[in-house]
Design a protein around this nucleic acid. Structure first.
Lengths: 116, 116
DNA sequence: GATACCTGTATCCAAAAGGATACTTAATCC
DNA sequence: GGATTAAGTATCCTTTTGGATACAGGTATC
């Protein structure tokens, strides 16, 4: 492999990571997915399950996740009109990302402060 | 397992992910690690290898990574005084996070726009 | 028609992240 | 003492992300 090939691969690697960070990065996106995955379907339930999130932020994150085909928003027409969020099949692939992040976060905490 | 246990686990999961995001998240941290890992040791080499990064941002990221025990900064005393950045052994564990992020980013790009 | 319930949006603001670019410092060579 | 080279800082700015809080809009019940 030439030097140029190496550089090309390196830059593609960077781009792929930055893409993932755009879609799943930030403080809230994976927590929102996990919350829905673990059974919360409705806006206020999701909001209540994630410590510190506000309405405005949750609303934005839900839209972002819907645009990226990770969740679905269904309107249920009984009283009162309910909205149900569910994760898509595709969303299950994010587990490949979430699990390593969770694991690394736990070991890093130990590494830095001993155990807490 | 009780409902309370479930909630506790859920919140710990969230916290672990948010911790990782703090240390490795954002646009530049993993790219900087990868650059050093792939052989760049000096400030200007690292800067040159990562498209779009600026001096100021790189400087901040290097400090952040050093504080988190992921890279080491060595002063080499010949002329002109050189600084060498190297990744620590501990840093190798970030591959467990970087590889899935890279993989997911690539498949997601296909999912969204067909292949590009 | 007042009330209550639910899903958000509107408005305004604060903090963090990222960016452009000039400059400093320090050594050594000539 | 002027030129060169390297690492990073200083300054100022823009963009993105996150946060607090009020309340709109629709419907059904009382």
């Amino acid at each position: 492999m030439t030097q140029k090939d190496n550089e090309k691969h390196f830059k593609e690697k960077i781009k792929a990571i930055q893409d993932t960070m755009f879609v799943l990065g930030g403080k809230w996106k994976l927590p929102v997915i996990l919350s829905i995955y673990s059974g919360n379907k409705r806006f206020n339930d999701i909001a209540g399950s994630i410590p510190g999130i506000t309405n405005r932020v949750l609303s934005k994150e839900l839209k972002h996740l819907e645009e990226n085909l990770l969740i679905r928003r269904d309107v249920i027409n009984d009283y009162p009109v309910r909205i149900e969020y569910t994760i898509t099949d595709y969303c299950l692939t994010t587990e490949e990302v979430a699990a390593p992040l969770e694991k690394w976060g736990k070991t890093h905490r130990k590494k830095l402060h001993g155990k807490l």
